[in-house]
Design a protein around this nucleic acid. Structure first.
Lengths: 204, 204
DNA sequence: CGCTAATCTAGAACAAGTTTCAGACTTGAT
DNA sequence: ATCAAGTCTGAAACTTGTTCTAGATTAGCG
């Protein structure tokens, strides 16, 4: 159920085909540039040139560099969610499955560390003007985690645990990207926080 | 083995009195400007002017805006640590005391939300070139939490829990500052993550 | 004191995000 | 097909972080 489209958009006037194509070219160029060079390498003029679009047009589609990169992240997240649905995690307990899911996502990010850098930095640097988009990313992440837990109808306590897991996930990524934590340490942190799930889900 | 102290500092050549005063003026101006307007309001030219220092000098003391704001955060953290030492948290269990400590810090930040914005955004946006300074902030935060737990000699498990608590703390602040989480929600998240401590400290 | 190296200053210059504008092109409705 | 409204383009301008330079000041030292 896509329930959020109505609140965030005052009738987005559904893009024409050429507009859709432009949007796609822009996101592709953004991911490409981010892929090598990270946040700093995504320069608006270059994105515009790469995607064959005037600078002003780029800004019409994405009102700031951060908006652009957060949209890029949404795009990548959807891709990842598809992958996960095709091969769900196989652990016995909810916390194992969540940890496995996040570690799988983490390995995907490790394959494109620069892209990860661009997306995560944009996400945490985003100010209020990007809140709707960041919130969308957050909802999508929540959905992925709840999926892994195999819950249709989580309790408030479980939702709190999921929020804390997301906090840890984001912040652990930040410390990894800035070289202050190793891959092993991120793994430990994820496994540690996932034990919270066992606290809120007594048995099964 | 502290292997990084040698690489990051080629003997800091202890500042003269006037230099110390300059540094202090700069940090003061930075906090002042951050206090109203947040991250964006801290403009390097203005900081330089406010602190009666040439722009080039400002950059000699703090090689980037992010360095400056992270240093500002170190400054504020020290202040806070002093306050906490004077009136330690009074909870019965370790997790209660940690939650109380963090909530106290959170209330202090609420009094200066713009300053909080500037410092937290700088911290999460910092790239590798600021790692030593960010790491220092992290160590200081860890010390505060361990203090609240009342531990002299934490187990590796407890250190993991503390790291996860720090992750949650930072990320919860980010969501609060960007208006995506309420104060109440931050409180819940902090209390939730603090229950991890009980998991790693069976009884007392 | 007088020298030398380091530091500081004022200001220009540069880089990249963002805004603006005039004119060309598309689109949708009549 | 034609018109109005909306969109796109190319280019310049503006903002703010950062760098650079030439000359003045300061600090340490013999």
């Amino acid at each position: 159920m896509p329930a959020e489209a109505s609140t965030s958009r005052p009738a987005p006037s559904p893009l024409t085909e050429r507009q859709e194509a432009r949007r796609r070219r822009i996101l592709h160029a953004s991911a490409q540039l981010a892929g090598r060079g990270g946040f700093d390498a995504v320069q608006m003029r270059e994105v515009a040139e790469s995607s064959q679009v005037a600078l002003g047009t780029l800004y019409r589609y994405f009102p700031s560099k951060v908006h652009l990169l957060v949209a890029t992240m949404q795009d990548q997240l959807e891709r990842m969610q598809g992958t996960l649905r095709r091969r769900p995690p196989a652990g016995d307990t909810a916390s194992e499955r969540v940890a496995e899911t996040l570690m799988r996502a983490f390995r995907a990010l490790q394959r494109e560390p620069h892209l990860a850098d661009a997306m995560v930095r944009a996400l945490t640097f985003a100010d209020r003007s990007v809140s709707p988009e960041v919130d969308q990313v957050s909802r999508q992440t929540t959905a992925i985690i709840l999926d892994a837990m195999g819950l249709d109808d989580p309790t408030p306590e479980q939702l709190s645990a999921v929020r804390v897991i997301e906090h840890t996930w984001h912040s652990a990524l930040v410390t990894w990207l800035s070289g202050r934590a190793s891959i092993a340490q991120v793994k430990i942190d994820i496994e540690t926080v996932c034990r919270l799930i066992d606290l809120t889900t007594p048995r099964e």
